[in-house]
Write a protein that binds this DNA or RNA. Structure first.
Lengths: 144, 144
DNA sequence: GCGTAATCAGATATTATTGTCTTAATTATA
DNA sequence: TATAATTAAGACAATAATATCTGATTACGC
């Protein structure tokens, strides 16, 4: 089965987008996220911790605690989130899996693939969460 | 960790390409492939079986047996191999992981992602093994 | 202050993927 | 015909990814 991003990463993307849809300054709990997004509670908890440690989110402990974006939504890109969870190996890895494939020693599709990969990279870097939030009108967008 | 194709699929792509580099009509054993490509023997064996069952390869049992392409290299595309091993879910799956994302109910990056995905699809469908073999001159290309 | 509800942290469990082992069946070749 | 080398098949093992559980700490609100 082909994968683009890990499930962790998908959950992270969904969660960050959800936070961006909440009024600025409000905190959202993992419990809230888990019911809205339909993703496993404790697993999501771990992911939120990672995103917090990486500086993309801020958290508040205790009753009525929760998570919020640590930066203005326009300063968080898809790439930031992917980088924090999955890392950036996909920007270099050979699509055929040859371990020593590189620009100097290219596989048969190295250059073509590099182009496609660059398009993906550009999209991830350009797309910020504010823009995405604007395109996501409804608050009950779980089904998306 | 982000992935494009599974490891199985990478091995399959490498193996089919290697077969295309051999003189037409010759058989190549799994043992040969395993040493040339540096991939695990029995695991590769399973993959070769799959590709044979899917009709991309033909096999011959017994001493001096092995595998060869079942079709002219120009009639085997990257897409055929990916389809046989990983399936084609990646052509529809939402990049953010929203289960009900679709053209009618798009996520915030649905349309952009559809474009990028289409580029990948086109590349996989267009790129045939004959063309790739031509671009891979050396027979000792394991390191690619 | 106390109780409640939340994050944080680490251990454990489950599932999927990757990799290995063993045996049987097949076939060229000596 | 006997042997050796190979594919085929299925069971098993190891590893990685996903998911769950438990307890500790923190902080709000009564």
């Amino acid at each position: 089965m082909s994968i683009i991003f890990s499930r962790q990463c998908e959950y992270a993307l969904q969660a960050v987008l959800y936070l961006a849809l909440q009024p600025r300054g409000t905190l959202t709990s993992s419990k809230d996220l888990t019911t809205r997004l339909g993703v496993p509670y404790h697993f999501l908890g771990k992911i939120m911790q990672s995103l917090t440690r990486k500086g993309l989110l801020r958290s508040q402990k205790g009753s009525s605690g929760g998570f919020a974006l640590a930066l203005p939504p326009k300063d968080i890109t898809l790439f930031h989130i992917v980088e924090a969870i999955d890392g950036v190996d996909f920007t270099k890895k050979c699509v055929l899996g040859f371990p020593e494939c590189s620009g100097k020693n290219p596989c048969a599709v190295h250059h073509q693939w590099a182009g496609l990969r660059e398009n993906i990279y550009e999209m991830l870097v350009r797309k910020n969460i504010a823009e995405m939030a604007k395109e996501t009108k409804k608050p009950e967008f779980r089904a998306r």
